[in-house]
Design a binder for these strands. Structure first.
Lengths: 299, 299
DNA sequence: ATTCACTATTCCACCTTTTGCAATAATGCC
DNA sequence: GGCATTATTGCAAAAGGTGGAATAGTGAAT
């Protein structure tokens, strides 16, 4: 006989002024109603109802208690209902974390289109250029560009491959020479788009041939656009996702380097906290995001 | 595993960010905490907590729910506590019903003295000159002057006897003659202080001798003071409680009739709704009232 | 007055649920 | 790679809740 339930039973009896009526209203048997109210009174140490076989009325304590407690119980029920709605319907807040490069490109579009479809969804967007801990950072959904995480603590979903390529400014290549083979990179300044800890090692493959190159001099940045800007400025050769440098390549400010050789592909992934069952709003957004990326192919 | 209790357990886990810590705080075993939270999540159909063996955190749904539900749970606890205090301490509202004659005499004094002793008590006073149904009238305590009620539905407590006597105005007695024996009343106008239904029958006793007299012409009123005023006006002979006519007797506006003969005594009683255990404020007031009446003897 | 219908309560056997302990699986730290 | 700690689960014992029938009490109708 739960605490809350017995309060509800009491409120029903108080409203109906009858135990059997309350029993009917709550689909209970009269004995259960009696026991429930008795238990509540015993717990409270206060008599709430004055009962005769022919009429039930409230003590003043009972009246005061009912008046005070009814809105609280209602509030709990409302909270439960809203919670269920928020889970089953596509509504509520989605806390999204993404790398900055995406925040400036695809995300504004994705989010406004999604919110047109699902106006009851709010989005809190944070941009971070590092691998975040989704649970520690209170994030519902992290968009990452990386090798698929091996974390057991998170769930992740692959969206698509993110092709990368080596680029440099024409000015740099003119001055330092254009590498013809991976080994030439040893004599170049390499700009790493990475957390920048430890020596930068690039795996390059051309068909079945693979080369593992440790870059010579290294500049690094955890921000893709900054890395690209350094490359545009002629600071060196950068390894960057294609979508970041696409525009610079098109306008000629950057030129592809070693176009036959490609580094291991990264994946665009969605990472979630370790839900047993993903809330609807997250699943819906994830589906929408995948569709958007697949159809517009911005990578 | 009650509804409310499992919410409290969840809140404890959410606050402590740990199942074992919550278990310690609530004097439970860790398995119980796990089961309680699981049951709550199952009932809500929503995952509230993200658990690892090393860290516990809230889902956004869980955070929202905790934020919303915590004050409600606190409110319920507060209500319970206040209710207990209101019962155990002498505080709260006492709804008193009394006959008008008392409302104008003893009650103002009783209530103000009582409230000086117990300032946290409020009193709602209604004056009614009829036998009221304490439970139907939402009354905590009814002060009655009558023969002790035989009602099974109420509890009553005798305070003291209320002596009555026969009185008439000197003017009336001079005009109609002064009765010398009970039988003489048959030829007088009798003013009844009573609900005034049916013929007025007065039982008079002088020592062991008893006479049952049916009054001749009858005036009646359910208000003691009105009855007394009619008697003062010389309308007839009235049977009234002594405390109502004491002043008129002292000033000579009324004179006692058949002083050797006295009607059955009435009782000043306190009547309560059918409480199993009387709330403290009512018991305290009742004790105070009895002491006041006994010491000042206003009857 | 007495019967009658209805109500709140209690009794009792049955059964679901809960509880605590021990065992298990999982995780972060040394 | 252990080690300590944590959340969880299995299992048997215990507790508590459940409904149906019986009981007592009440107000109204006869």
């Amino acid at each position: 006989m739960g605490d809350l339930e017995s309060i509800k039973v009491f409120l029903a009896v108080a409203e109906q002024r009858s135990f059997v009526a309350a029993a009917r209203a709550l689909s209970m048997t009269p004995p259960s109603v009696t026991r429930s109210v008795n238990a509540l009174e015993a717990r409270l140490g206060v008599q709430l109802l004055l009962r005769t076989t022919r009429q039930v009325s409230l003590t003043s304590a009972g009246a005061a208690y009912a008046l005070r407690v009814a809105p609280l119980v209602q509030g709990l029920d409302d909270a439960t209902e809203d919670l269920r709605d928020g889970q089953s319907q596509t509504a509520g807040l989605i806390r999204i974390n993404a790398p900055m490069s995406m925040g400036e490109r695809v995300l504004p579009d994705v989010i406004s289109q999604f919110r047109t479809l699902h106006p009851r969804v709010s989005v809190a967007l944070t941009l971070t250029d590092r691998l975040i801990d989704v649970v520690a950072e209170q994030t519902d959904l992290a968009i990452r560009i990386s090798e698929p995480p091996r974390d057991k603590l998170t769930i992740w979903r692959k969206i698509c491959r993110v092709p990368r390529l080596l680029v440099a400014a024409p000015r740099y290549l003119d001055a330092q020479g254009t590498p013809a083979a991976p080994e030439d990179l040893l004599h170049h300044t390499c700009i790493a788009y990475d957390a920048g800890a430890g020596p930068e090692v690039w795996d390059l493959a051309a068909g079945a041939t693979r080369r593992r190159i440790t870059a010579g001099r290294v500049l690094s940045s955890n921000n893709g656009d900054l890395t690209a800007r350094l490359a545009v400025n002629g600071e060196g050769i950068a390894l960057l996702p294609r979508f970041i440098v696409a525009e610079a390549l098109a306008t000629g400010r950057l030129r592809a380097v070693l176009p036959g050789w490609s580094p291991p592909e990264l994946w665009l992934t969605l990472t979630y906290p370790p839900y047993d069952r993903l809330p609807t709003r997250l699943a819906t957004f994830s589906d929408f995001f995948e569709t958007y990326v697949t159809e517009t192919r911005p990578m």
